[in-house]
Design a protein around this nucleic acid. Sequence first.
DNA 1: CAGATTACCAAACGATCGTTTGTTATGCTA
DNA 2: TAGCATAACAAACGATCGTTTGGTAATCTG
Lengths: 214, 214
Amino acid sequence: MAKASATRMKDRSGPPSAGPAVSRQPNRRADILAEAARLFAARGYDATSMRDIAAATGMLPGSLYYHFASKEELFAELHDRAVAAIDRAVDSALDGKTGAWTRLEAALAAHLAGLLENGNALAIMAPDFPDDRGDLNARLIARRRAYEDRFRDLIADLGLPETIDERLFRLMLMGAVNWSPVWYRTDGAYDPAAIAGAFIGILRMGFDPGTVSK
Amino acid sequence: MAKASATRMKDRSGPPSAGPAVSRQPNRRADILAEAARLFAARGYDATSMRDIAAATGMLPGSLYYHFASKEELFAELHDRAVAAIDRAVDSALDGKTGAWTRLEAALAAHLAGLLENGNALAIMAPDFPDDRGDLNARLIARRRAYEDRFRDLIADLGLPETIDERLFRLMLMGAVNWSPVWYRTDGAYDPAAIAGAFIGILRMGFDPGTVSK
DNA sequence: CAGATTACCAAACGATCGTTTGTTATGCTA
DNA sequence: TAGCATAACAAACGATCGTTTGGTAATCTG
């Protein structure tokens, strides 16, 4: 895997701080991102070639390199966008909600719904990359870590008894949810909210007795 | 990906039903399996080439095809062996144990220990293959499904209240455990038994009150 | 209207992939 | 000892991969 020479590549992401942005074919870059997201989610990173993405976008393979310096760069941007989108979804799910357990459940449901969006974003959020591919992997992990800190706070608010290891509590809950896309079926009996509700219900039973149903 | 022509390939797996098995270089096939398992676990399926496996085994790439019809076949056998090994580990962990919660915890600890064995068997057990690659994926999923049924029974023995969906209970618990290899560090504070104990402890608190410690 | 920039096409490059083919020692068996 | 299956080597095949290079219309800017 050759180191991508970033010459001639202008960073077209970032905020459109000044000027009316570009005007010619204003949306091809967004098209690429959308098609790449769909393909990565459906087939995984390795099984999706730049030629596939180009064909789905109606371009030639080399043309992608005008917008993105490399395949890894393209994927990393998708990853960042997915994390940011889920982060915002959690924000709005939390908006106005009160009660530590209710807030945790709402955040969890938004998190899961975000994971399942666009087919299946698991392939984008999950640690698809074993250990290898150092730079990219480190970047993705850091992004996710920052996001998952939100749940550390939400769990701290629960006021769990001291005998409970809050870190393991969080890892258990997040693991259960992050694994859900593996068995989730869109035609199944549960939707994201129901799954989050059931998980929280099971846990809540032990720590917050007297609350059988909502 | 050309359809592998299985001509000239004798199935060298299966039970050594009759005769003293092969006798000449009796162990090269096992070497291949061992090295392939190590490489797949470390780098993943796609990032591990047949040339890598051959080099690690001290053979030439083509020689692998005397023992295995294809790369997928090699992986599938590894997957089956991993599932079988964990199945046996759960067997022996359960041996002599009584009490529904204790048995579930023991099975869970053995399951997690098995996942973490050999570096990280996650790459072997996990749904590495997105949706594509039909034949192989179907086979792997079927093997895992049969194995995971064990936990359905263990959970049924708990006698959970009727308000609890046992399926979601199982999916939650298995998801939490199956996700653990993602964050598990061998130099960390927890070993598989501690993790299983903590997870069960959190759940048990709600359904089996009065049991603070073991 | 001249020049620069944008957004692409067309075509290829070198590397690597899974796999196949033909051959060759080696040991078992009759 | 002849014949045969075993277990590998040696070398290549065709395909596909990420990426690069050079050119070219279209658009924006001065």
